[in-house]
Design a protein around this nucleic acid. Structure first.
Lengths: 226, 226
DNA sequence: CAAAAGTGATAGTAAAACTATTATTTTTGC
DNA sequence: GCAAAAATAATAGTTTTACTATCACTTTTG
């Protein structure tokens, strides 16, 4: 990625953090290294203690930024979805044709992730893997309704709504634009997981990608329908 | 459900349990009550200790049946998918027309769950909620490849393959039958989750169901495609 | 340069996720 | 009907997690 924009900041929801990690070196280190460590160990085995050792800092200091590792995951996810939204808007901005615009959107969502030099402390490639492997755990909790009302999932929902707008622009008659948008977004990541771990129940691999599958799927739905 | 079949048993994979819970009263009680308790507390807050108190039995006795709560979840999921497979096969058995058969299959997968009197100790309605809320956690782990090679997900994969066969029968030219099958199965449950917790990003509700959405989606894909 | 803010070190708690041992009860095989 | 075996229960103990609390030290800044 080489579209450097001076002082770009992905803004996440108020309240996911106790202290903005973007406001200090330690904060950025916490975020940057937590991505690598969660990617390595998996979310279950990841602890603030281990992260403390890794960054040569203290467990208690990390707690001053994030209430729990669950909140950290919410933060990382919001960051990822905010970044994705920014790419989606940025790269489809000057496409007038609705079909072409939607095609581009699907491409952006399912493309291979590359490091973004605008955010040097964040490894987007590792973060993308975390989203594939851990994102569901951030909302599959008993507290989801409460956290949703706090706005902790608003970036993700906004991304789905943007996609649904693009779908709607192609075919305003289609009844299931919201469900299609949420299915595509969720499905892209799920198919990538299957490709890596359950290859016998997906067609997606290095040649035939989730991008191909969902492009075909979306336009089939939008062309036929009433 | 009123298709009682004498001595029907859903067979799960060897190795998910240390001792077959179907082989004793205590075992069945463990399974039956764990479903209710996980449904109540969520998987994270559920513990064998709490389950022990609930069934008036000892934590250590539960460990003789299941190595960990993770293995218990794998067992419950396998049971659910085995039961679903059985319904799928049973109720679509004598439908000759491929289209009609696939339609029926989608209906079975997305229909409202009713208690099945063939399995008196299992509350299928609660188990269905567990699948919606917790199933992803059973495979989103660092150990997934190892557990997959042990066959712990074979029932689920078999179900996807059955669905893919039905898709294939309708349109053998369609390139993405496997991905479509896995997307539909995963998507049906995901849309139900969204309906309950993120209604702003789904069209599914009491009138317009995930059944409607996926029927439309699947046949759009299969009719158009080359 | 003093106050305040941030960070680090240490200690402590409650609960989870087990394992091990021994006692008691239940089942079963003869 | 009873002894042996199997299943279950009770108790205790271990390690780790997910925190909270306190205080000391260091860095920033007005």
């Amino acid at each position: 990625m080489n579209y450097l924009i001076q002082s770009l900041k992905i803004v996440t929801q108020e309240g996911v953090f106790k202290k903005d990690p973007e406001s200090s070196d330690l904060g950025r280190k916490i975020v940057g290294e937590s991505i690598l460590l969660i990617d390595e160990l998996g979310f279950e085995s990841f602890t603030f203690k281990k992260l403390g050792v890794r960054i040569g800092s203290n467990e208690s200091s990390i707690y001053r930024y994030f209430e729990s590792k669950h909140m950290l995951l919410l933060y990382l996810a919001s960051w990822y979805w905010g970044w994705t939204e920014y790419k989606l808007v940025f790269f489809s901005a000057n496409i007038a044709d609705p079909k072409e615009k939607l095609e581009k959107a699907i491409e952006i969502l399912s493309e291979n992730i590359l490091e973004d030099k605008n955010f040097s402390h964040i490894n987007e490639v590792a973060l993308h893997r975390i989203i594939i492997n851990e994102y569901s755990k951030s909302y599959l909790t008993k507290d989801v309704d409460n956290e949703n009302s706090q706005g902790y999932f608003s970036v993700y929902k906004r991304l789905v709504l943007r996609l649904r707008e693009m779908i709607h622009a192609v075919n305003p008659q289609y009844t299931f634009s919201l469900s299609l948008a949420s299915t595509v977004l969720e499905g892209i990541f799920h198919q990538q997981f299957l490709r890596d771990h359950f290859p016998t129940i997906t067609n997606c691999n290095d040649e035939l990608t989730s991008h191909d599958f969902f492009t075909d799927l979306v336009f089939n739905c939008l062309t036929i329908s009433k």
